[in-house]
Write a protein that binds this DNA or RNA. Structure first.
Lengths: 257, 257
DNA sequence: TGCTTGATCTCGTAT
DNA sequence: ATACGAGGTCAAGCA
């Protein structure tokens, strides 16, 4: 059920952006409550943060950049690093109020139940931005590597025949499943980055599991732009094989989808 | 009111924040060049982004929130999601200039060589923030789970004796290495979240590797707050064992670092 | 909804 | 510098 206020907000023409310098806390709290679904809101404030959920954390009072998105995302950024210090993912529910003279921003989510509480002593700036999202395209994914090998099976070795992509087993999903020229089973695991020991472990698990249910010989290939030393040791101990493939080198002519 | 020259000549941050609405592009470019090492700078602009590096991407012109940090971090956020659409990690080098009447922000890094180029047609707002970072504390990590089992070895089973934490092997690091009451080797792998098939694969690799170099029986335990179905199947096939431990349930009395 | 896996993963730490 | 493993990983795709 929408209140009259909520209806009015939606109908009201929206500014491209709204700036409040040193905003009154009551005004800021009301603005956040009424508008967080419509604007991306940035708050630059001296603030402290407490988080309680899968883990728990405390951030002592300092200058932080707080971003609230219409989808429920909350970010608390400091002056360093790509990662936010604290955050809440999309779907979280926001509220804001004044308590003991301080501006409080609280975000809650369920499954898992998690709460972030931000207490602002002095909000320096509040900036609300009316944004629309653009179109985004990415290239050079792992699936493009699989497509390349599907079209160029001899990359694995002469006589290799791809059979099925993303073959689902009880143990997990095999990137590419096929046969070699002697009709042995071939399992291919692709990585777009340098392969590590974890990737070898994953391939070994698949090979062992398939081998247990089959009389054929089962061979495992790891296809990646490189492999770490430890991973190479583990690979050889497990009698698995490696093929070097750089996603950068297969961009020619790959633009489908 | 400070003059433009005064603003541009700032070497170290003096103002808590500086706001420019609809800034002139030449002024914005010069401000960014001169001040990105001193302020966290937010730019709200109609802009397009191209990225070229480990992968490649294109973001069509739209409204974006661009954040530049003194450590070289660059973030391009849209109105949704916790993750930036494009980014550059700390250590990247920034520059800015006007080209063909548009404000260009370019970030470069080496190892790997990666470039992000942002072209702003109309910068709505530029906000420079003078921030200092606070102290941050986190609780309930995986290592606290290991500590708990070290102090309560019977949690694994009667007669279990922990021997060494973070035992380094050629294949990787074993969280906890010990012996059972029959002097069999025991390998423990901890996860603070629900364990999946990858975690079983990792444990299986360690157990197989140690078994190959030993005459003792080698047992493997996975300790986590839960385990997925596929992981449980793989676990049983590999004759490994599971112990349920929730990091939340061991916080009582655990505050020593 | 839950599960599985990729990611320009990022980030800390130890060798 | 490299490598390994954790992460409140997040987010997409599919049963």
């Amino acid at each position: 059920m929408r209140t009259l206020d909520e209806i009015l907000e939606v109908e009201t023409p929206r500014e491209k952006y709204i700036i409040m310098e040193e905003p009154d806390k009551e005004v800021a709290a009301e603005f956040i409550r009424k508008n967080w679904r419509h604007y991306v809101i940035l708050i630059f404030a001296f603030s402290s943060v407490k988080y309680e959920g899968r883990a728990a954390s405390e951030l002592s009072p300092s200058d932080h950049i707080i971003i609230l998105k219409p989808d429920g995302t909350l970010l608390v950024h400091g002056p360093e690093k790509r990662e936010p210090i604290n955050w809440q993912p999309p779907g979280s529910i926001l509220t804001s109020f004044v308590e003991k003279g301080k501006l409080v921003i609280r975000s809650r989510r369920y499954k898992p139940r998690e709460t972030v509480i931000i207490v602002c002593e002095s909000p320096y700036v509040l900036l609300a931005m009316n944004t629309r999202s653009g179109e985004f395209r990415m290239f050079r994914s792992e699936s493009q590597m699989v497509d390349y090998v599907m079209r160029n099976p001899s990359f694995i070795e002469e006589g290799f025949v791809p059979v099925i992509k993303e073959y689902r087993t009880r143990f997990g999903i095999i990137d590419l499943f096929g046969r070699d020229k002697h009709n042995n089973i071939v399992i291919c695991e692709f990585k777009r980055r340098v392969a590590d020991v974890q990737d070898v472990a994953q391939l070994a698990l698949y090979v062992d599991a398939i081998q247990r249910n089959s009389n054929c010989k089962v061979r495992g290939f790891l296809i990646a732009p490189g492999i770490t030393d430890m991973a190479l040791i583990a690979l050889k101990e497990k009698n698995l094989e490696f093929r070097k493939l750089n996603p950068k080198s297969i961009i020619g002519g790959e633009n489908a989808v």
